[in-house]
Simulated scan of single mutants.
Amino acid sequence: MKPRRGGGAHEFPGPARESRWRRLVRYLPPLPNLVFSLPSVLYPAVRTLRFPLIGLFVGLVLMTAPVMARADAYEEVNQKLHAGRYAEAQTQAERYLQGKPRDPQMRYLLGLVQRASDKPDAALETFLRLTTEYPELPEPHNALASLYASRGDYEQARLSLERAIRARPDYATALENLGDLQLHLAQQAYCQALKGKARNEKLRARVQALGMTCP
């Protein structure tokens, strides 16, 4: 039976379509056999394909190994820092930096160790160099600000915090520290104003409302 034409497409009647499908199925090999019915000439290519894949895997492992080693070194120094083992942390950080002297993460950790172990001058130098070489990193600017603030150099602390925020506008730690610094400076200004001869009850009420106290 010839196919009927309609709508520009060939449509087969039911019995003809069924017999055609059955004939097609007879020529399809079972699905599991498809894997093993490759010509034998392709077997060497399939076998050799495994070796580039293994080489790629080994290459990826070798590439990620240094990254993992660095992460382990950072974690070890950080753990010793938080455990109060400052001498060990500093020794390990300095030994690491002998091989990678420009590593900003380890240099930052070294600065934190120096600050925690009561070596503010060394920490200040470490953070200053970091902010000069890596101005795009906000954390060293913030750490530098804390050192300036501890010395009473609030202007330099403010500038460092503003640099940290410019480097990362959503850096919450620097934003909070800048707010605290501004409150401290405001308290100093208010208290200085209250020392004047003229009594300023409005200013005194404002100071009390802000929870500030003047000596």
Rank of each mutant, 00 (worst) to 15 (best):
F51H: 06
T173R: 13
A87C: 01
R95F: 04
L81K: 01
F127L: 01
M106A: 03
A122Y: 01
R206E: 15
A83D: 11
G6Y: 15
L137S: 04
A145P: 01
E139Q: 13
Q79A: 09
E136C: 02
K195M: 01
A198T: 11
A69F: 12
R129G: 13
R5L: 15
G196H: 04
L144G: 01
E11S: 15
G196S: 08
P44F: 00
N78L: 07
Y74E: 12
A189Y: 13
E76D: 12
E11D: 14
K202A: 15
F127T: 00
T64I: 13
V41L: 10
L60K: 02
E75R: 11
G179C: 07
F36P: 00
V207A: 11
G8W: 04
L185G: 10
Q192L: 07
D121C: 02
S146Y: 14
L53Q: 00
A189N: 07
Y86V: 06
R85E: 11
A87W: 07
P135D: 02
S117V: 10
T213P: 05
N142S: 12
Q92W: 08
E133L: 13
V25G: 01
T213V: 14
R26Q: 11
A164I: 01
A145S: 00
Q187I: 07
D121V: 07
M106C: 03
K202H: 15
K100L: 13
L181Y: 08
I54G: 09
L159Y: 11
V67Y: 10
L28C: 05
A45S: 05
A174I: 10
R95Y: 05
L147P: 00
A9R: 15
T91E: 13
P66D: 14
H82K: 08
A143Y: 03
Q182Y: 14
R17L: 11
D180Y: 09
N177M: 02
R168V: 11
E162P: 08
P104W: 13
Y190F: 15
R50G: 12
P101I: 07
Q92L: 14
A116Q: 09
L181F: 09
Y43S: 04
R20E: 15
L38A: 07
P120C: 00
K197F: 10
K202M: 12
E76S: 12
A71H: 14
G152A: 05
R20Y: 15
G211F: 13
M63A: 12
P32E: 01
A164K: 03
Y96G: 02
D72G: 06
A93H: 05
I165T: 00
Y190V: 14
Y74S: 09
K202R: 10
G55I: 04
G55Y: 11
C191T: 01
R151L: 02
S19F: 15
L62K: 06
N33R: 08
T173C: 11
